[in-house]
Amino acid sequence: MSEFSFPAQDTAAMGAEDVDLGKARDGDNGAFTRLVTPLRRELHAHCYRMLGSTHDADDALQDALLRAWRGLARFEGRSSLRTWLYTVVTRTCLDVAETRGKRALPVDLGPSSDHAVLDGNAPLADVAWLGPYPDANLSGSQAGPDARYEQREAVELAFVAALQHLPGNQRAALLLFDVLGFSAAEIATTMNTSTTSVNSALARARKIVAEKVPSRTQQQTLRNVDDGRLRKIVAEYAAALENGDADALVALLTDDVTWSMPPLPHWYHGIEAVTDFAVQVPLTRCPSWRHVPTSANGQPAVAFYLGNDATGPHLAWSITVLTLRGEHISDLTSFIGPDHFTPFGLPAALH
């Protein structure tokens, strides 16, 4: 994973911030809202990286901002308000992570299956599953191209999944230093520890992440794929499922493709196993598919809706995130469940 950091708050806004800060300390909730609104998206993305769940990120950010509002009198201005808010948010996420545990994908639970599993593949409710992240939650057009690139790189599925293998303190140190650009001394203050401990945590975290994240990020891959070609890949993949066309699907996949479907525990690796699953289940046993293109975790994605027939309503089924290698799909991660659709602003059904 390349090292990247997001820019600090525009200094031109600092005068207005100082005025609002004084008002907020006097109990003006509107002033506090004006202070935190420009930072909400980046703070929310930080919560997602820490916790691996959009819903947990929602709860953690709400709790953290409440803590910040109640503790604003303790903010002495020794650091920027942004830095102080990241301290509050990070500590809140560490509390949540300690109580809820790390998020997982099916590949973390056991070996792949070499053929379609039709029985004994019920959803596992006792596993905290990693979830997808809507790109719309990232900072918008006010960020320059390089910043938008870095924001997407920092929420890529492989990176967020790798973070879940780190203890909370290592996860926080890595994100604050490598992603957000805080110094080791600032991180030590945030985490109530020493710079030596921070540097040690960083070294261990980088080693684990390097073992689990591909050397080439999805943003690097996608920059070399023409936008028109990318839209074509997504459309052809969705059409293959909708038309029950196994040959068209296989033509889009790498030989070592993987397909996983949290919260289902079984997953498939290799073109033969993936093809067998596709033919046995989504291409033949699912009566009718419809889709809406979207994007998640800085990657192309497809929202799929399943219906009993082509003419009836189709209900929200899964958000499938595509990972590319070159111009072929190397990983399919289908996050099953209608609860994933709301954060993406997608309807619960297509009629």
Rank of each mutant, 00 (worst) to 15 (best):
268 Y>W: 05
181 G>T: 01
331 D>S: 08
159 F>S: 01
148 R>A: 12
3 E>L: 15
229 R>C: 11
222 L>A: 12
306 L>Y: 06
338 P>H: 13
68 A>D: 03
345 G>K: 05
69 W>F: 14
23 K>L: 14
38 P>N: 13
313 P>K: 05
177 F>Q: 00
213 V>R: 00
11 T>L: 12
20 D>N: 15
328 H>T: 09
71 G>H: 09
195 T>L: 09
131 G>C: 09
57 A>R: 00
64 A>C: 08
314 H>K: 01
283 L>Y: 05
98 E>H: 13
290 R>F: 13
124 L>Q: 08
171 R>W: 04
325 R>E: 13
309 D>G: 01
108 D>L: 04
259 W>P: 02
325 R>Y: 10
350 L>G: 01
70 R>S: 06
106 P>C: 00
232 K>L: 07
297 N>T: 05
342 T>C: 09
314 H>F: 04
159 F>G: 03
23 K>A: 14
330 S>K: 06
256 D>V: 12
339 D>S: 13
71 G>W: 06
54 T>N: 06
52 G>E: 00
287 P>N: 01
251 A>Y: 07
137 N>H: 14
120 G>Y: 12
166 L>P: 04
266 H>Y: 05
172 A>P: 02
67 R>I: 09
21 L>V: 08
141 S>G: 13
120 G>I: 11
244 G>Q: 01
308 N>L: 10
113 S>P: 03
27 G>W: 07
137 N>F: 14
55 H>M: 11
328 H>I: 08
